[in-house]
Every structure is written in C-alpha cells, then in structure tokens.
Design a protein around this nucleic acid. Sequence first.
DNA 1: CGAGCAACCTGCATGC
DNA 2: TGCATGCAGGTTGCTC
Length: 271
Amino acid sequence: MPELPEVETTRRGIEPHITGQQVNTVIVRQPKLRWPIPPRLKKTLPGQKILNVTRRGKYLLLNATKGTVIIHLGMSGSLKLVESDQAAKKHDHFDIVFNNNKTLRLHDPRRFGSVLWTTRPALNHPLLSSLGPEPLEDEFNTNYLFQCSRKRSVAIKTFIMNSKVVVGVGNIYASEALFRSGIRPTIAAGKISKLRYQRLVNAIKNVLQDAIAEGGTTLRDFTNGEGKPGYFKQKLLVYGRTGEPCTMCNKAIKQSQQNQRTTYYCSHCQR
DNA sequence: CGAGCAACCTGCATGC
DNA sequence: TGCATGCAGGTTGCTC
C-alpha cells in the first residue's frame, strides 16, 4: 500500500482536477471494503462541490460543501482520474462522477481500503481523532519522539509504525529510516538515546521527502492520480534487498520478522 | 495501560 | 498445467 509519500502523491495528482468540481453521481460497485461504503453517500454527495483535497496521515480528505469523504487506500488501493465513459475494470469498486465528464475511480484488489463520509469536522472522526503528529510538520521533532518513547519496551520499528506515535510511516519507510539513522529495528524504543532520536527524526523526514519528490514507491501496482508509477523504488537502500550488498559496507542485507511484517536491515551498519 | 497477534482480501511467485 | 503455500504497501480489535 501506499504509505505517506504515495498518498501525498495521489493527493497532488487529483487535487487540481477535482477542486471546484461538482459531483454528478456516485457509483458503488462493491461496498464491502474495510468498512462498508455508507449507502447515504449516493444520495448526499451529488450536487456538492469539492472544495479541496487534504491529507491526514494516510487518509485522503475530499472536503465537500456539506461534509468530507474520507478515503484510505489500505494495502492495494489507488485512485485515478478517468474519462467518465471509460469502462470499469475488475476491482474498480467506487466512482465519483463529476459534471465535467471526469471520474475519480477507486481500484483496490484486496479491499483493505475504505471510503467514509462525515458531516462533522473530519479530524474529529474516530479513525482520525487520536492520530499522532504529521512526520513532516515541526510538531514531530526530537523532543517529542524521545519523550514519547520513554518506558516503552516495543521495538523501535514497531514504535515508529504506530500511528498514535507518528502517522504515515509504513513498512518500507520504517526500514529505510532506521537504516539511514543506523538503528537496529529490534532495539527497545525506550532504550534509545536522544542523540539517536535526533538522527531518526531527521531520517524519517528526509526519506519521506525524498520519496515524495520521486512520486512515491511503486512495488507492484501503485500509480498516482494520472496512472503513473513512482520512482523511489530505485532509491531504496534496504527494503526488498535481502542478500544484496549494503550500500555502505557491502555486507549482505538481512531480513527478519516483526509484527507479522518483514524488516530489512544491515547487521553491520545498524546497531 | 501496553504488547502480541488474528483477521480482513486478492494476486502473484514459488515449489512440487 | 494444477495445486498448495507463503507473502504483499495497513490497521482494527481481540486477548492476555
């Protein structure tokens, strides 16, 4: 799935095309996503205008006249703008058809994504209300992460992937940021020094910014709003590189399991 | 409260 | 070619 850079890439791709546009129709082909697509969306959204498209963590917020469409892409979701007469393909579960003959189309084979609707401030929605800070904002800094980590025994990789700690860091960028900062993914979060947290915070910010600049990472099927892949995969230093030489020391990259997820690291460079 | 893990679902690569 | 297995970008919600 899309981690923060891929969601941000999607946001930038669709935002200029749907801002100010009026919704004509909502088409639900498969309502069974992570949560059911709310049935009232089909009646309530037509006629409304999209005011802007924002992002909170990995959630996209289509802010409309009378409420907000909250979209999460899960593991395999992607959004694309297509001509409204374009036929839907397999796993094209949801469309917002606009009056200008363009359609925003959600494609999601695994259906871990979600489409929700709220008429209250979106940030108050239960799924968004207890999220941690945005990693690229100033609130996410060394002091914050260090304080937050005290007395926490969880592995540092698990810790930075916890959206209550910081949003947007998924399996790819967690491994990459820990490599960039020289920290072994299994170290207990509470045992890491402030200096090392400073390096980690910088690494998280830098890797996410670098990835956004490349349009995100396309492993298999991620595409931006215009159907194009991202190019950050070529710059991954450890993720998916098991057995290949470390770019720093030439030793073979290792992999292990944490929380049912694969972790990639260099046993020489990360301590 | 924190930690660990099963669950949701489909597609694809691999091995027999 | 077919079948079984394991793995994949995420997150909630359950147990302990």
